Simulated assay, not measured.
Amino acid sequence: MILATERHAVPDGLPAALAADVALFLDMDMAILGAAPAAYDGYAAGVAREFVPVVGEAAYRRGRAAFLRGSLESGRPLFVTDRARAELEGPARSNMGRELAALGR
């Protein structure tokens, strides 16, 4: 399941029950993206606190903006299961768009 987070996709060829579990795991991994704005903003601030000391402010802002833009413009849903898409996709895209705008990118 952890390895599936690299591509954020359920690997082909899994038995149906395991594939369903992996799909739920992937959506849980990304659920913070669709959280209430204040919770998302806390998460985003935590990501910055983790990475800015390692890569510097400018590189962090470029990299984070590239990740957000790539995720938003990929044409792929952010979530795997129908339920997560229905409940979290819109709020996640809104949160990510706000963060991208705040990064000035």
Rank of each mutant, 00 (worst) to 15 (best):
L3T: 14
L3H: 13
T5E: 11
T5V: 10
T5Q: 14
E6M: 14
H8R: 05
A9M: 02
A9F: 00
V10Q: 00
P11N: 03
D12N: 06
G13C: 01
A16G: 08
A16E: 15
A16K: 08
A17Y: 01
L18M: 07
A20I: 01
A20S: 06
D21V: 01
V22G: 02
D27L: 02
A31P: 02
A31W: 00
I32H: 09
G34M: 06
A35S: 15
A35H: 12
A35T: 08
A36P: 08
A36K: 13
G42S: 14
Y43R: 11
A45D: 14
A45T: 14
A45Q: 14
G46A: 12
V47I: 15
V47D: 03
V47M: 11
A48P: 07
A48D: 11
E50M: 14
E50H: 15
E50I: 11
E50V: 13
F51T: 11
V55Y: 06
G56Q: 07
G56R: 10
G56I: 13
E57Q: 14
E57S: 15
Y60F: 15
R64N: 08
A65C: 09
A65N: 05
A65Q: 07
A66F: 04
A66K: 02
F67N: 09
F67Y: 12
L68D: 09
L68N: 10
G70H: 03
G70N: 02
E73G: 07
E73T: 13
E73H: 03
G75N: 03
G75R: 02
G75D: 03
P77V: 00
P77C: 01
L78G: 12
F79N: 00
D82M: 05
D82R: 13
D82S: 08
A86H: 04
E87P: 00
E87Y: 01
L88C: 06
E89S: 00
G90H: 05
R93V: 04
R93N: 00
N95T: 07
M96H: 04
M96R: 02
G97D: 07
G97Q: 05
E99I: 07
E99P: 06
L100F: 04
L100W: 05
A101V: 10
A102I: 07
L103K: 12
G104A: 11
R105A: 15
